[in-house]
Structures are given as structure tokens and as C-alpha cells.
């Protein structure tokens, strides 16, 4: 028996794949590796997620800021007994580097992969860098699923030994422009071989339901597991910022109102006039409401046909995952 796990009817046999295939509503989380060589920070964040999620996404130089690599962080997660979903962007690596790193990632025990285009480096801390974009996210999905299913490298050469087998995901931004094309771009990812999809943050459930209606019409929900992206808001300012500045995120006024309402006991007071205790109390009240909104969103999203799970993005606020998952009635996680 080799280390090849493609047995028992699973493509890969990762926990995430088994959970989805069993029909359980899946929960994935996200962990942003540190901007230092501090492996303990990863271990501490992992401890907050352990048991509450089926897989943990490890970002790949998120927002083009240098961090511990997703595969290195994933190795720590494997050691800690969590299942990583390694993210791989097309920004920093060409087809040689991506394939080489994935061979290594598989050898190190990683089984889930999310293929991404990647934020432009202009947003990060090395805006003068040369980017790569040798292939795009859709071509990456095809490349890695061909490595798995056809036992071929991108150039067409066949594997002689063990092939890397990844349960392969891609992202979808249902509300980015041109909005009419988004379901078709999702279809391209499915046709490229994607097994699961994690979406951009959803706050507007009605708009997402419309997107899903088109997805069902195209039969895509039967070919791919769709995990809706959710994330707790920390403040009304964060909600307004995302609505205004982040492409592809819709935040309805109703949600901004709820966040405002949470801080109402302190309304009319400038931050400079508030005591430390008052600021702390207001922040706590807002964060609790942010978590409650997230729970409400999960429950609404769960009702939409074709939504196979949620991807909880609580970057730099990993403590929120436990109350969210518990509050949404998704704890304990089923064993598969």
C-alpha cells in the first residue's frame, strides 16, 4: 500500500471531502500565518479552531503581505492534528514552482488545496515586486486535478511515482462585476475540475440566493460543493469600509444598522471622551452582535439549496469561531 489514499470511493479521502460526501453541512475556517517566523502563533490560533472546523484555510501571502508560507503553516497544523486547506495563488509562483510545492505539500500530509488568482502585489508590503501570473486560478485547478487524475504534469509528462492527490477548491466572488458572468466563471472552475468552492464574504443573503438560483439552473451545485463565505463584523466602521472599499462584497444597510444599534448605549460619545472601560464595553457589545449576525447568516444560508457548508473567515479574530459554530448549532462536528 502506498501513501495514495484514493480508495473507498474518495478522490482524496480528506476529512473535508468525507464530511461533504456524507452530506454533512461542512464548516471550514481560516488562519492567517504570522508576518514572522513564529510557529507558536500558528499553534495558538490552531488551538482556537481545533474541533470547531473541518478544515482550516491557510492564506498564501494574503493581501500580498509576506507571511509564513501556507504549506509551512499547514505542516504545523498537521502536527497539531488539524486538517489544512492550503491556499495557493498564481501571483507568486509559476507552473514549475506551484507543482513542486504541491508535490512537497502532499508528501508533508496536506490533502486540501484552494487555487486562487491572488491579490495584486500593489496592495501589499512589496509593491515594487515583479508578479508572476504564469497561469490563472482556473488553469491551476485544471493543472492540479490533472496531476491527480491523469497522473500528468502540466507539460504532459506522466508521473512515475506517487501523484499528489488534493481535494481541490476554487473561490467564487458572486457579487463582483460583471455580475451576470459570475455563475459562468464558476462553471469554468467546475469544468476545470474544482471539487469545492469557497465564496467571498456573503452579507446579502437575498443577492446570494439569486446567484444560487442561477447556479442550480446550471446544475453546478450537483457537481461541486459550495461553501458560502461568512465572517463576523467587529464594528459598524468595518461594515461600512467593506461595503465601500472591498470589491465584490455587498453589506445591506440592515446589517450596518444592527452593528450601530449594538453600540447605541454609547451613542453620541466621541472615542476621546470615553473611558477605557466604556470603550471596552462598546467594543464587546459590537463584537457580540457581529457574532450573532454571523450566526443568523449561517442559518439563512443553510436554507438555500445547493449550499453545502460555510467558510468562516475570522482572520485575526480566531476566538470568534467557537461561539459562531456553537451558536449556529454546528457543534460538535460530526465524525466521519
Amino acid at each position: 500500500m502506498t501513501t495514495n489514499e484514493s480508495t473507498n470511493g474518495y478522490l482524496v479521502g480528506s476529512k473535508l471531502e468525507r464530511m461533504l460526501k456524507a452530506g454533512h453541512f461542512a464548516v471550514t475556517g481560516e488562519l492567517g500565518p504570522p508576518q514572522s517566523a513564529d510557529g507558536d502563533e500558528i499553534r495558538e490560533k490552531a488551538a482556537l479552531l481545533k474541533g470547531y472546523v473541518d478544515g482550516v484555510n491557510l492564506t498564501d501571502n494574503q493581501t500580498a503581505i509576506v507571511r509564513i508560507s501556507s504549506i509551512a503553516a499547514g505542516t504545523i497544523l498537521v502536527q497539531e492534528g488539524l486538517e489544512p486547506v492550503i491556499q495557493m495563488t498564481a501571483r507568486d509562483r509559476n507552473r514549475l514552482a506551484i507543482q513542486a510545492d504541491l508535490l512537497g505539500a502532499y508528501a508533508l500530509g496536506m490533502r486540501n488545496l484552494l487555487c486562487l488568482t491572488g491579490d495584486h502585489q500593489i496592495f501589499g508590503n512589496h509593491p515594487t515586486a515583479k508578479h508572476v501570473f504564469d497561469i490563472d486560478s482556473i488553469q491551476m485547478v485544471k493543472m492540479v486535478t490533472d496531476m491527480r487524475d491523469e497522473k500528468k504534469f502540466q507539460c504532459g509528462d506522466e508521473f512515475k511515482g506517487i501523484e499528489p492527490r488534493f481535494f481541490t477548491g476554487a473561490a467564487s466572488a458572486p457579487f463582483a462585476d460583471p455580475i451576470d458572468f459570475r455563475p459562468y466563471r464558476l462553471a469554468k472552475k467546475v469544468n476545470a475540475g474544482a471539487n469545492f468552492i469557497q465564496t467571498q464574504l456573503v452579507y446579502d443573503v437575498d443577492a446570494f440566493a439569486q446567484f444560487m438560483e442561477k447556479v442550480r439552473e446550471m446544475g453546478l451545485h450537483e457537481k461541486v460543493y459550495i461553501l458560502a463565505g461568512v465572517g463576523p463584523l467587529k464594528s459598524p466602521g468595518m461594515a461600512r469600509y467593506m461595503k465601500k472599499n472591498v470589491p465584490g462584497i455587498l453589506v445591506p444597510d440592515e446589517i450596518i444598522d444592527r452593528m450601530n444599534e449594538a453600540g447605541k448605549p454609547w451613542a453620541g460619545k466621541k472615542s476621546s471622551e470615553m473611558t477605557k472601560e466604556e470603550k471596552r464595553a462598546r467594543s464587546k457589545a459590537r463584537r457580540e452582535e457581529g457574532i450573532q449576525i454571523c450566526i443568523d447568516l449561517i442559518q439563512q444560508l443553510r436554507e438555500i439549496e445547493g449550499v453545502a457548508g460555510v467558510h468562516v473567515m475570522a482572520i485575526e479574530w480566531e476566538e470568534a469561531v467557537k461561539p459562531i459554530v456553537e451558536g449556529a448549532g454546528l457543534y460538535p462536528r460530526p465524525s466521519v
Binding site: 488568482t117 490563472d136 488553469q139 473561490a171 466572488a173 462585476d177 469554468k188 465584490g248
Partner: peptide, 28 residues
């Protein structure tokens, strides 16, 4: 901005690219 052959990426908004509101999104 990313020379994508299967665009647009998720950074396309109101016809412009994520890098700058003055840069049209080629894929739009």
C-alpha cells in the same frame, strides 16, 4: 493587471480594476 486568460478575477468592480479606480477592468 494580472494578464489573466480566464478573467475577470474577483477584483473587478464598477468596470474598473482593483488596483486603481482609473484603470478599466479589461475583462469587463
Amino acid at each position: 493587471s494580472k494578464s489573466l486568460l480566464n478573467g475577470p478575477c474577483g477584483g473587478s468592480e464598477d468596470g474598473h480594476c482593483e488596483i486603481d479606480a482609473d484603470v478599466p477592468c479589461a475583462w469587463q
